[in-house]
Design a binder for these strands. Structure first.
Lengths: 164, 164
DNA sequence: CAAAATTAAATTGTGTCCAATATAATTTTG
DNA sequence: CAAAATTATATTGGACACAATTTAATTTTG
């Protein structure tokens, strides 16, 4: 802490606390909420929430995955995924079945309806891309920068464990 | 939908669905979670959650605000803020009192302990800044880019209302 | 001025998230 | 091979987040 050399009091009144709007963490927090809100009217007709849509994206990328594998891709654990997957099953987009070779594992597979949704969702992706108001190149750069940031933060979590 | 002019089948099998990792919305979603997780061990000693910390930031910036005003800064409504503010009060960081001039409004003010926390939190900010692994200039640019993006998305929400 | 409209918070219900625990199946070890 | 350790998923409890409703106070209007 820098000394307030011309002040008389020992404790400083308000020691340069950054503005909410100046903080990257808040910019990301706000952007995440803005994305969720933008997706909502596009996903509502399909009865999907935004996190559910992310799970569908993961399954369109690779079908027939376990809860563990999905959780790895999405950064979520079974506490979040278990009930979410039940809702996706109730909506008719996925099927849940135990792996015959390892009954601990649950295999999540797309139903025909869930698979078809991937094509129908092209309109959603186009609409969102438009809503960002950014050129594709800018979006890619931002995405890459955020992934680097996320990786750094994740690495820091481990480091902290040592320090603590 | 665009016609698949050289294909024979009416429906395309898998029409170029982007990877999870290629999507900006998921990069932001992941970064937001990573920040929350990075903050957690730093905020736990104070009994604060990350959203509660954001409210404190807003109050350090301007004390004595109404729920409505806080919600405007944070992008949250009373449904989220009402219970959260009660928890902050229970933790001793803020006081909640009705505005004498307009009994509908609730004035949220920092307690001495809440005010002091702003200074103590300097260590948290330093630690997080370090954890991002980014130069200050990069952080500022990212913040600005995300704010533009968020503004665009918010503007799009209104546009959509017209179209729908 | 009184009824109607508006506004600010609080409440309720649904759906994430995460931590901690429980349950069940598999693998490792003695 | 049987007990112990590990692994995968499910469940429980606390805290957001948001839509919709409710309540109370204020403002607008007739």
């Amino acid at each position: 802490m820098i000394d307030n050399s011309d002040g008389k009091e020992t404790k400083m009144e308000t020691p340069a606390i950054p503005t909410l709007d100046a903080q990257l963490c808040f910019a990301i927090y706000s952007a995440a909420h803005a994305f969720t809100r933008s997706y909502k009217p596009l996903l509502d007709p399909y009865g999907l929430t935004y996190p559910q849509y992310l799970v569908m994206l993961a399954l369109w990328e690779e079908d027939g995955r376990t809860v563990k594998a999905l959780g790895g891709s999405l950064g979520l654990d079974s506490g979040t995924l278990s009930p979410l997957l039940k809702r996706l099953e109730a909506s008719g987009y996925i099927a849940r079945a135990r792996d015959r070779d390892d009954e601990r594992q649950l295999l999540v597979t797309l139903t025909p309806r869930g698979r078809d949704l991937g094509g129908e969702a092209a309109g959603i992706r186009a609409e969102i891309g438009r809503a960002t108001g950014c050129a594709p190149g800018v979006l890619e750069e931002l995405t890459a920068a955020l992934r680097r940031l996320t990786d750094n933060l994740k690495a820091g979590e481990d480091t902290q464990a040592d320090a603590a």
